[in-house]
């Protein structure tokens, strides 16, 4: 069984806060528990215990936040800005190399996978 929030299916057995931060890009554990507090949910509430009204309230809260593609766009814009001004981290992103001074002789696989100008995730 799964609960549908904003078109995404979340496992019914998850805690509400856990389900929110595991599902939506741009929501961390603390933001998720803040949403629960604003809606008035108790901390150990599970997804399957949510009523229709509570799901609506959560959806309303999520609509006011920068999440999913909006949040990804913010990251992309930041990378594009760094590239535009010609900063070191901008160049490293362009080359697909680690940004924070890590070695590249052996590893750097994550950077090669993720660091792009049009970053996906």
């Amino acid at each position: 069984m799964a609960i549908n929030i904003l078109g995404k299916y979340i496992r019914a057995k998850y805690l509400v806060s856990e389900g929110l931060f595991k599902t939506f890009y741009g929501i961390g554990p603390q933001e998720a528990s803040k949403i629960c507090a604003r809606v008035g949910l108790f901390p150990k509430m599970r997804m399957h215990q949510l009523s229709e009204q509570q799901i609506m309230s959560i959806t309303k809260e999520l609509a006011g936040l920068t999440i999913e593609n909006e949040a990804r766009n913010v990251v992309r814009e930041n990378i594009a800005f760094k590239r535009k001004i010609g900063s070191y981290s901008g160049i490293r992103h362009l080359l697909g190399f680690p940004v924070h001074g890590q070695n590249t002789r052996n590893n750097g696989r994550t950077a090669k996978k993720l660091n792009k100008l049009n970053r996906s995730g």
């Binding site: 528990s33 803040k34 629960c36 507090a37 604003r38 008035g40 108790f42 901390p43 150990k44």
Partner: peptide, 8 residues
Amino acid sequence: SAYRDIDY
């Protein structure tokens, strides 16, 4: 407690 009010 582990509970939070609406202002967190």
